[in-house]
């Protein structure tokens, strides 16, 4: 780890002022950034601790939530309104990492979690375009069992590791951002980028921009929602595939649906095609399968991860089936 300075921001404005200096990074819980600094994947000259940002979870009158960026993962997962109105979010957070890490991690930081691609982590010994643009990618022809099946590019086949973000993608969340040039709000599904030619850029954040809050719109159908994570060990492992889903069925017909996938792409993958294919269809296994297939039609698996296509298909069908069954 290279030497760096450390300061605590009193609030968002203070953080943005401190963060204006090149080479500065914002520090939340540190559960990913400290690890990446130790691995040499990040080498900031200054850290600005932003855990003094809002830790409020504000319940809106319409049923939506405004969540301060410094809210810890555990606090969000255990919040009564989240458990009742957005159970998929609670479950997604609780499916991630370990209790210790969830106690540390902030939701703002979680959005900026970086990939677990082992070639990305091995900066000294492997080529990685995410670490060093133009260097090449050793994962494409290497061990890529955990890698992307959707939206990858010849430059990068890494996946986004967050569980929480998959639920947020499904829930139409938006991300509140502040920077020197002012405030803006970005839909969560547009915060993270696909790799294209610039896999070093995980998100659309400009230098110095700070995530201050996440907004969840009221979404009544989310009260019947869930998150299913498929992984190699029973706990404390990253997803091979995960599915966040909410389903509203009326008289046997899908009235509305939200669906997102984790572990399959460079970003949390909102399954727009599947959703579109499902609305107005009978809530049947056939329809669920057709929707899954529509979403996965463009999947392009690598040497070791073809199983993910089938796994994603099956998991989508099972999760939607469970939600439909629970609603009957």
């Amino acid at each position: 780890m290279n030497p760096f300075s450390y300061s605590r921001a009193a609030g968002a404005a203070d953080a943005i002022r401190l963060g204006a200096v090149a080479g500065t990074k914002y520090l939340g819980g540190g559960t990913n950034l400290v690890d990446l600094m130790r691995e040499g994947a990040e080498h900031p000259e200054a850290l600005v601790d932003v855990t003094a940002l809002s830790r409020e979870i504000e319940e809106r009158e319409d049923g939506g939530l405004m969540i301060g960026a410094a809210v810890r993962n555990t606090a969000l997962a255990e919040h009564r309104a989240v458990r009742q109105r957005y159970p998929m979010l609670s479950r997604a957070i609780l499916a991630g990492a370990s209790a210790q890490i969830r106690n540390m991690a902030t939701i703002g930081g979680n959005l900026l979690q970086r990939t677990r691609c082992t070639y990305f982590y091995d900066g000294e010994g492997s080529r990685c375009n995410k670490r060093e643009p133009g260097q090449g990618c050793d994962a494409i022809d290497g061990f890529n069992r955990n890698h992307a099946i959707l939206g990858a590019s010849p430059a990068c086949v890494a996946t986004h590791p967050s569980d929480m973000c998959v639920a947020l993608a499904a829930l139409d969340a938006s991300v509140h951002i502040e920077g020197r040039s002012g405030k803006r709000s970005v839909p969560l599904v547009e915060l993270h980028r696909l790799p294209d030619g610039r896999p070093d850029l995980d998100t659309v954040l400009e230098p110095g921009e700070l995530i201050t809050a996440i907004e969840l719109p009221a979404l009544p159908l989310a009260s019947r929602s869930t998150y299913r994570k498929v992984r190699d060990r029973a706990s404390y492992a990253f997803a091979l595939v995960s599915v966040a889903a909410a389903l509203e069925v009326e008289s046997g017909t899908v009235k509305d649906v939200r669906l997102a996938l984790g572990g399959v792409a460079h970003k949390p993958w909102r399954a727009w095609r599947a959703e579109e294919a499902l609305r107005g269809q009978p809530a049947s296994e056939d329809a669920f399968r057709a929707a899954a297939e529509a979403e996965l039609a463009d999947a392009s698996p690598l040497k070791d991860n073809a199983f993910k296509v089938e796994l994603a298909r099956r998991t989508i069908v099972a999760v939607l089936g469970d939600l439909a069954g629970a609603g009957r």
Binding site: Y6, T74, S98, A99, I101, N103, M104
Partner: peptide, 22 residues
Amino acid sequence: QGACGACTVLVDGERVLSCMTL
């Protein structure tokens, strides 16, 4: 690496990983 839990301590009563805490 934040992956084994052996460094777990309590900070303000909450369990955290001391290896990932500056």
